Amino acid sequence: MLFKSAEVVEFAIAIERNGEAFYKALLDKVISEQARPVLQYLAKAEGQHIEDFQNLRDRLGDYQTPQQYDGEYEAYMKFLIEDNVFGKAEEIEKLLAKIQSDQDAIDLALRFEKESILFFNELLRLVSDTDKEPVRELIRQEQEHILDLAKLRSALNVKE
């Protein structure tokens, strides 16, 4: 079985939906009032990413994934999806229940953003040259989210 690029984009949409839900839920559990504007921004940005990926999905054709043997790339992408901190919607509540401090919240958000970048970099291999720039832009935005979270962690004096 081969993954089609549109299927991988569907996974990206699901991850972004889960990330948006996480940031919104985290707002209800506000750890620090200083964190509220950053979390609101991140929730809104994840919502925009959903729209961007939906637009990308609608433009994609039936690109076949690169692989050395049958199922190789599919297994790799499934691992990236399932291992993503927000790969499964039902996991969000479990993750939120474990948050006990600013550091826990920021560390989890940083992990999500880093894993998203890894996944989106792989997505670059599945899109045409004309669709690479929108994906690169989404990666740049995720990198900015990491910087925003790092600044927040620093401002809250959370130790690494």
Rank of each mutant, 00 (worst) to 15 (best):
L123V: 11
Y69L: 06
F79D: 04
Q34L: 13
Y41A: 11
E160S: 09
V9S: 00
L39K: 05
E90M: 13
Y23S: 03
S101V: 07
Q143M: 12
R125E: 14
Y76D: 07
H145K: 06
L147T: 09
L95E: 05
A109S: 14
Y69H: 13
Q67A: 09
Q48T: 06
E93K: 10
R17V: 09
L96S: 08
E82F: 13
P37M: 10
Q34P: 02
K98T: 09
E46T: 09
A21Q: 03
L27M: 06
A89E: 12
D62E: 15
Q143D: 08
E16F: 03
V127G: 04
F11C: 09
Q103A: 08
L42H: 05
L56A: 04
I81F: 15
F119M: 13
V38S: 06
F22Y: 14
E91M: 15
Y73N: 06
L152H: 07
V127E: 08
A43I: 01
A109C: 09
I31Q: 10
L147E: 13
Y23A: 04
D129P: 03
Q143K: 15
A150F: 03
L156W: 08
I13R: 01
R125Y: 05
Q143L: 11
M77D: 02
E93V: 05
R140N: 12
D28S: 05
V135I: 12
E20V: 01
N84G: 01
L80I: 07
V127A: 07
E113F: 02
E20P: 01
R111L: 14
P66R: 15
G87E: 07
K24T: 11
P134A: 07
L118P: 00
L56V: 11
I139L: 08
E74F: 15
D83I: 00
V85D: 08
P66T: 12
A43C: 02
